[in-house]
């Protein structure tokens, strides 16, 4: 048991930094999606990758690096805040765009030729 604990302590900083790096790379991937996707509603989906996976991985990484339980509690608070407010903000943006009459693109996009635009 003590060996396991010491092993965890030894591996903690490396694993934490690795998860942090993966989280930040996911943030870049989400941003690339936001830059590439063709219309507003599809960009919303790309942004939600940052809001969920990147945040979770980065917070877990920082938690592994955390020196004390107070830091851990603050990280949990940040995670909960972002997970509770993120979807509300996304829904508010989507609903405002829908109410203002912004039409979404419907049907298959890309793949060379553009076929059958239902909107």
């Amino acid at each position: 048991m003590t060996e396991l604990l010491s092993f965890i302590d030894a591996v903690r900083p490396g694993l934490g930094a690795f998860l942090l790096l993966v989280g930040s790379l996911l943030a870049i991937i989400g941003t690339v999606g936001v830059l590439r996707f063709p219309d507003f509603y599809t960009r919303l989906h790309a942004a939600s990758v940052t809001d969920t996976a990147a945040v979770t991985l980065a917070v877990i990484g920082m938690g592994l690096l955390a020196p004390s339980w107070v830091v851990m509690a603050k990280l949990v608070a940040i995670w909960l805040f972002i997970f509770l407010t993120g979807p509300t903000a996304s829904h508010a943006i989507a609903n405002a765009a829908h109410t203002a009459g912004l039409e979404p693109l419907i049907g298959r996009q890309g793949r060379g030729e553009d076929e059958g635009d239902a909107s």
Binding site: G33, F37, A53
Partner: peptide
């Protein structure tokens, strides 16, 4: 959420855009 993330990440990184909103 993590399962669904994988699909969107693949869609973001595909070289030619292929989505069906």
């Amino acid at each position: 959420i993590f399962k669904a993330n994988w699909i969107v990440i693949k869609a973001c990184l595909r070289s030619n855009l292929d989505i069906n909103p």
